[in-house]
Deep mutational scan, measured.
Amino acid sequence: MPSETPQAEVGPTGCPHRSGPHSAKGSLEKGSPEDKEAKEPLWIRPDAPSRCTWQLGRPASESPHHHTAPAKSPKILPDILKKIGDTPMVRINKIGKKFGLKCELLAKCEFFNAGGSVKDRISLRMIEDAERDGTLKPGDTIIEPTSGNTGIGLALAAAVRGYRCIIVMPEKMSSEKVDVLRALGAEIVRTPTNARFDSPESHVGVAWRLKNEIPNSHILDQYRNASNPLAHYDTTADEILQQCDGKLDMLVASVGTGGTITGIARKLKEKCPGCRIIGVDPEGSILAEPEELNQTEQTTYEVEGIGYDFIPTVLDRTVVDKWFKSNDEEAFTFARMLIAQEGLLCGGSAGSTVAVAVKAAQELQEGQRCVVILPDSVRNYMTKFLSDRWMLQKGFLKEEDLTEKKPWWWHLRVQELGLSAPLTVLPTITCGHTIEILREKGFDQAPVVDEAGVILGMVTLGNMLSSLLAGKVQPSDQVGKVIYKQFKQIRLTDTLGRLSHILEMDHFALVV
């Protein structure tokens, strides 16, 4: 994948999101292997301009796509893939009243899908469409860049269908997702969380590099694949309309690839034109409109599966009536509230959605109805927002919020430890010299600072030695090549209790 991002070429006709291997024109390309080798690009942008032909009021008969309808489940399912879809609609009884809503608040519980998330729908649909058009064949390999849930859905379907599955996901995604993927037989590649989507090191860039190296491999490409919004247009939206008897006044959905909100909203605009569509985008993402909503100094966020630093091709923002931004604290607070007060075992993005819903639905009156999409299960986040310690460490809970008995030293300040200034190293000294210094002084790690004293990161003896043994660096290389740029900081005025929580999850903390 090139470091400079080429513009994806656009073909003359058809839909841009065809499933299957992508040609340089962004659509299915038939021909000899030699032709494909000559024409197939190194990668295709996940934010390529959409060429979708959908228009409100256009006859369904003019759609270029294969459409399906929700099917009634048999008493005995032939395999677990038949437990994807037909998820329950559940009334939220307490939270709406707590925040003064007059309307009825309903939750579409997508964590009841077989793999635990709304992404099971698009995973199965992308595979079925690729099999139907002859792209996927027995023994082929599926590769997908994902925040985890699409990966789980694909790995689940691949396990049943017999495909090899490789999932490329950023490091910030939970260990629970990784464990589930491994249990399903998927191979996992992790990428830096802070890598831009168009960087060769991003999950998108690495996935395309693997595709170019592995024979008979395919990126189904949830960011561009029409099967993504079509899955929701054909099934999720129809289920909502049936469950609500066609009567709903507002739908609120958090947005990642945009397939969920695009597919549902398009069908609702056709069948229930008075329904307002509300999009939820986390602070630090750029999906919301108008652009002024996205202006923030924050560039990272903890909530998973929603928000991006690019506009995915499948996201149709014209069908969203209003956007709201959400933050991590309210997302996790509301997710825990949904679990504790409503018994809905949902993930953090569901918290984002409901946090926005109780604001947006203030305009609705008694007798009206708001539906929220709860995308995934708490299963993926047992060591994250479900953990009091994690919430404390991230600053989303305060010590006084917890009532468990603490040891005698818990409320003492870090400054009472009488710490001395640490050994520091410059980023320009060599790895070999740094190892000598650390061994001589008896230290395992040291902060790396520039000549102005600005902290650049941390270097550890173990990481340097393993990097040297693996051949990633040489003793003569500058130590700046092996620094940890993500590390926890703590102030002298913070409590030892807070430091204790940090050290339970990290090997060190830097006192500043």
Rank of each mutant, 00 (worst) to 15 (best):
residue 24 A to T: 15
residue 76 I to H: 06
residue 242 Q to M: 13
residue 201 E to C: 08
residue 234 D to F: 07
residue 11 G to P: 03
residue 167 I to Q: 07
residue 121 R to T: 03
residue 158 A to F: 01
residue 100 G to C: 07
residue 32 S to G: 06
residue 179 D to V: 06
residue 111 F to R: 03
residue 151 G to H: 00
residue 199 S to A: 04
residue 160 V to P: 04
residue 39 K to V: 08
residue 269 K to N: 07
residue 223 Y to D: 01
residue 63 S to K: 09
residue 79 D to Y: 09
residue 247 K to P: 07
residue 13 T to E: 08
residue 22 H to K: 01
residue 234 D to T: 05
residue 33 P to G: 11
residue 116 G to C: 12
residue 37 E to R: 06
residue 243 Q to T: 14
residue 87 T to I: 12
residue 15 C to R: 05
residue 96 G to P: 09
residue 245 D to I: 08
residue 95 I to E: 00
residue 127 I to R: 01
residue 77 L to T: 03
residue 137 K to W: 05
residue 143 I to Y: 06
residue 21 P to N: 13
residue 231 A to C: 11
residue 67 H to C: 10
residue 157 A to L: 04
residue 126 M to C: 06
residue 80 I to D: 04
residue 272 C to W: 12
residue 2 P to F: 14
residue 186 A to R: 00
residue 98 K to S: 15
residue 274 G to W: 14
residue 186 A to P: 03
residue 78 P to D: 09
residue 196 R to Q: 13
residue 19 S to F: 09
residue 221 D to F: 09
residue 268 L to I: 09
residue 256 G to I: 00
residue 209 R to L: 08
residue 28 L to Y: 11
residue 40 E to Y: 09
residue 138 P to R: 15
residue 151 G to N: 03
residue 143 I to Q: 00
residue 88 P to V: 06
residue 127 I to G: 01
residue 275 C to T: 02
residue 108 K to W: 00
residue 113 N to H: 11
residue 239 E to D: 10
residue 264 I to D: 01
residue 70 P to E: 10
residue 76 I to M: 12
residue 78 P to I: 06
residue 8 A to W: 04
residue 262 T to P: 01
residue 269 K to P: 01
residue 239 E to F: 04
residue 238 D to R: 12
residue 253 A to C: 12
residue 177 K to T: 00
residue 146 T to D: 04
residue 183 A to M: 07
residue 59 P to G: 06
residue 237 A to Q: 06
residue 39 K to P: 11
residue 154 L to E: 02
residue 75 K to V: 15
residue 70 P to N: 10
residue 35 D to P: 10
residue 61 S to Y: 13
residue 27 S to W: 15
residue 94 K to Q: 13
residue 26 G to D: 12
residue 242 Q to D: 13
residue 216 N to M: 01
residue 15 C to P: 09
residue 180 V to D: 02
residue 112 F to E: 07
residue 12 P to D: 05
residue 45 R to Q: 13
residue 110 E to H: 01
residue 147 S to T: 03
residue 132 R to F: 07
residue 129 D to Q: 14
residue 53 T to H: 04
residue 196 R to T: 10
residue 63 S to D: 09
residue 100 G to V: 08
